[in-house]
Simulated scan of single mutants.
Amino acid sequence: MMDQRTVVKVRIMGEEYTLRTEASPEHTRAVAEHVDRTIRAILSGSSTMETHKAAILAALQITDDLYRERQAMEELGQDMRQLASDIRPLLPPTKRGDDAGAP
């Protein structure tokens, strides 16, 4: 199998990083820009915070956002499964997707 990694240079907090990634360069740059914006937003709220501490807080914030989105997706999936379960008896037997309509 061929390795499809590309090299992308990004800048975060004025530092250049060379990343090897399977993601597109556009995606990788967007992710790096999001990290940079998040760190800068944290630093703008404090005149004395060190950059590495702001980076840790940014990582925590971004991870919290990720976990909340995952939870929301799980809840949406549960809601969709429940809706499908509620609707299934209302469908004609041939459209239910089970063996109820089989002869």
Results as ranks from 00 to 15, higher is better:
Arg96Asn: 06
Ile87Leu: 15
Arg68Lys: 14
Arg81His: 05
Leu19Lys: 06
Lys53Gln: 14
Arg37Thr: 01
Ala84Met: 13
Met80His: 10
Gln61Asn: 15
Arg88Ile: 00
Lys95Gln: 12
Pro89Trp: 14
Ile12Tyr: 11
Asp36His: 10
Arg5Leu: 03
Ser85Gly: 14
Leu43Ser: 05
Asp65Thr: 06
Arg37Asp: 14
Val8Trp: 06
Ala59Gly: 08
Ala58Glu: 06
Thr21Ile: 04
Met73Phe: 03
Ala23Tyr: 12
His52Cys: 02
Asp98Tyr: 08
Ile12Met: 09
Arg11Cys: 14
Leu57Ile: 08
Pro92Lys: 13
Arg40Cys: 01
Ala30Phe: 01
Gln71Arg: 10
Ala55Ser: 13
Glu69His: 13
Asp99Val: 09
Leu90Gln: 09
Val10Cys: 07
Lys95Ala: 15
Thr38Val: 02
Leu83Arg: 10
His34Lys: 14
Lys95Val: 03
Gly101Gln: 01
Arg96Trp: 06
Leu83Glu: 02
Lys9Gln: 14
Asp3Ser: 04
Ala102Ile: 03
Gly14Pro: 00
His34Glu: 04
Glu75Leu: 15
Val35Phe: 03
Ala54Ser: 08
Gln78Ser: 12
Ala54Tyr: 01
Ser47Gln: 13
Tyr17Gly: 07
Asp99Lys: 11
Glu69Ala: 15
Thr94Phe: 13
His34Gln: 11
Ser44Glu: 10
Met49Ser: 05
Arg68Thr: 05
Leu76His: 06
Arg40Phe: 01
Gly14Ile: 03
Ala55Tyr: 11
Met73Val: 06
Ser85Ala: 05
Ala55Arg: 09
Thr94Met: 09
Arg37Ala: 13
Ala30Ser: 07
Gly101Pro: 03
Leu76Ala: 12
Arg88Glu: 11
Tyr67Ser: 05
Met13Lys: 10
Asp36Arg: 00
Thr28Arg: 02
Ser44Cys: 11
Glu15Tyr: 09
Arg40Gln: 10
Gln78Phe: 03
Gln78Val: 12
Asp3Arg: 00
Glu26Tyr: 05
Asp86Arg: 14
Ala30Asp: 05
Leu91Cys: 02
Lys9Trp: 01
Ala32Ser: 04
Gly101Asp: 07
Ser46Val: 01
